[in-house]
């Protein structure tokens, strides 16, 4: 029996003025799955991700999260977002707050936890990403990889039903990528549902349950990594993947 669907995008369109970046996209993410979205830049991967938690409003289409259509106007999006974490390419840590406060802020504001309780939950999340020892440091004192692990902890701390990753390693120096990927791997082992926009083809191939290949604002392929990476797809996909495969 298949697990239940956590996140579903139905016929999503997104226009920026005259430019159509998403042209009828459908995706489904089931509980416990890790789905990677790959594709050339400008293919609409990040726009799709940002439509999922309504940081961008889709021009048309629906986002169904945990059985609820969250694109309806009456939905309290702040309540929804507590259950849908997001990790950003540029980390977006709050520079005026230390590591612990970065993670605990939403717990206190949104989760209405007391200070001690929020800190305890935050420390637990920081331990998961191996950043507990830096609890008092400020973002400016951390390496990019460390900042991104704190960014992941900020999402994890809310105990969401899914975490969206928007190119989490693209802004990192190559030697820092592995520590972030290791954290994501351990999250997967714990059963976290994840939707990951990435350029790390090794990660997509080895850890995904499914890989979505996007091109020109549509889903060009959606299958298991084995199928996708065996280059059975169309011309565009083969040429995109060949660049990656040739690097090996």
């Amino acid at each position: 029996m298949q697990k239940k669907i956590i996140l579903e995008a139905v016929d999503i369109r997104k226009d920026y003025g005259d430019l159509r970046v998403l042209n009828g996209v459908d995706i489904r993410v089931r509980e416990g799955e890790l789905v990677s979205i790959i594709g050339p830049s400008g293919s609409g991967k990040s726009s799709l991700l940002r439509c999922c938690n309504l940081l961008e409003r889709p021009t048309a289409g629906q986002i169904i999260f945990d059985g609820e259509d969250i694109t309806r106007d009456t939905v309290n999006i702040n309540r929804v977002r507590q259950n849908m974490g997001m990790v950003f390419q540029q980390f977006n840590l709050y520079p005026h707050l230390n590591v612990l406060a970065n993670v605990s802020l939403a717990l206190r504001c949104v989760g209405k936890l007391g200070k001690a309780e929020a800190n305890a939950v935050a420390m637990e999340a920081l331990t998961q990403v191996d950043m507990a020892h830096k609890r008092d440091a400020f973002p400016g004192q951390l390496s990019g990889g460390q900042q991104q692990r704190v960014g992941i902890a900020r999402a994890v701390a809310l105990n969401p039903k899914i975490i969206l990753f928007d190119e989490p390693t693209s802004a990192l120096d190559p030697e820092l990528v592995s520590s972030v990927l290791a954290v994501m791997k351990s999250l997967r082992e714990r059963g976290m549902t994840m939707l990951v926009v990435t350029h790390e083809m090794g990660f997509a191939r080895d850890l995904s349950d499914r890989v979505i290949f996007m091109d020109g604002g549509v889903v060009a392929a959606n299958d298991t990594p084995d199928v996708i990476f065996s280059s059975q797809g169309n011309e565009r996909m083969r040429s995109f993947l060949s660049r990656f495969l040739n690097e090996r």
Binding site: R81, Q90, V110
Partner: peptide, 27 residues
């Protein structure tokens, strides 16, 4: 203040007012 700051705060479920008060205005 970069837009990413607001996006990060909103992505954790904080309201526009909470984001202003705790993230944007202090910075």
């Amino acid at each position: 203040i970069p837009a990413g700051q607001t996006e990060a705060a909103r992505s954790t479920g904080m309201s526009a007012t909470q984001t202003l008060r705790h993230v944007v205005l202090p910075q």
